[in-house]
Design a protein around this nucleic acid. Structure first.
Lengths: 143, 143
DNA sequence: AAACAAATGTAGCCAACGCTACACCTTTGT
DNA sequence: ACAAAGGTGTAGCGTTGGCTACATTTGTTT
């Protein structure tokens, strides 16, 4: 009888931690907002993601518990060292994906949207291929 | 004062419906499993996604309610016409993403994993660019 | 036919991520 | 200084998706 596809491994990794994706998004956003506004308030985050301040608040609380963010009641939100590191690597990956999409001919508005969605699902190998492609404007070439 | 980035629109679309992604994944899996095994049982689905049969069951129930799947107690799971259409388009998109990744030099194992994650986040424009790229083995060229 | 194994269903728990409504603190402006 | 406005916190609710444990049905095997 035919074997079922059964590729649980694949999915194990694909849907690893949704909360990890959220963590990355928020940490990245906090970094961007601080960069743009000097400080990051809860409302800024909520507006950034288009969610209520309640949702943003709960997620921030979780990330504080996880040691990525730091804040005090009614105070702005800051990045811990760990958070800052994570934000930086996410921003870099994000930018690579975005410029790759543009390099293959996508308009920058759509590249903005797609890169947000894609960034959490590219393996390091893929990121590296994207990076090289952008650099040369060419596909690989087994080196 | 500096303007905050504030790109809620982008995120509105990025995180549209997680349940839509799940729906697409499940419908696609049902199609694959039927294709491979003649029929699709709950256990097969559960194993495919690496979740318990309870989780799979609940999701199947939702998709039945949404008109994508059809089943009866203790019977195999089938696709409705709508479900079959959705499955087909997802499979096509998935395959385009997968072959694109391979075309830029990714190994097929990693391409399997990454394409699963990426497929839900590529706009039609991006899919089209991927498709053309695969066909020519070349980047675009504004035509 | 009875017994056993496997598949499915159901109950009930947990966490993440949405929300509204309301309370409370801070900041601003008069 | 005080009132209004705006930011933040908290209570409580809904949905999705994950689980274990247990009941039930189906199918197989003796």
């Amino acid at each position: 009888m035919p074997q079922p596809p059964s590729k649980p491994t694949r999915y194990q990794r694909t849907r690893k931690d949704h909360s990890t994706e959220t963590a990355e998004d928020y940490v990245e956003a906090v970094a961007e907002l601080i960069d743009a506004n000097t400080q990051c308030r809860l409302v800024d985050l909520a507006q950034y993601f288009g969610v209520s301040h309640v949702t943003a608040n709960r997620i921030v609380a979780r990330l504080v518990k996880q040691g990525l963010l730091r804040t005090e009641p009614y105070k702005p939100i800051e990045l811990t060292l760990t958070g800052r590191r994570l934000a930086k690597s996410c921003q870099e990956r994000h930018e690579i994906v975005r410029s790759f999409l543009i390099a293959i001919g996508l308009d920058s508005a759509t590249a903005d949207i797609d890169s947000e969605g894609i960034e959490h699902h590219v393996s390091p190998q893929t990121v590296e291929l994207f990076r090289r492609f952008v650099k040369r404007g060419q596909p690989n070439s087994s080196d």
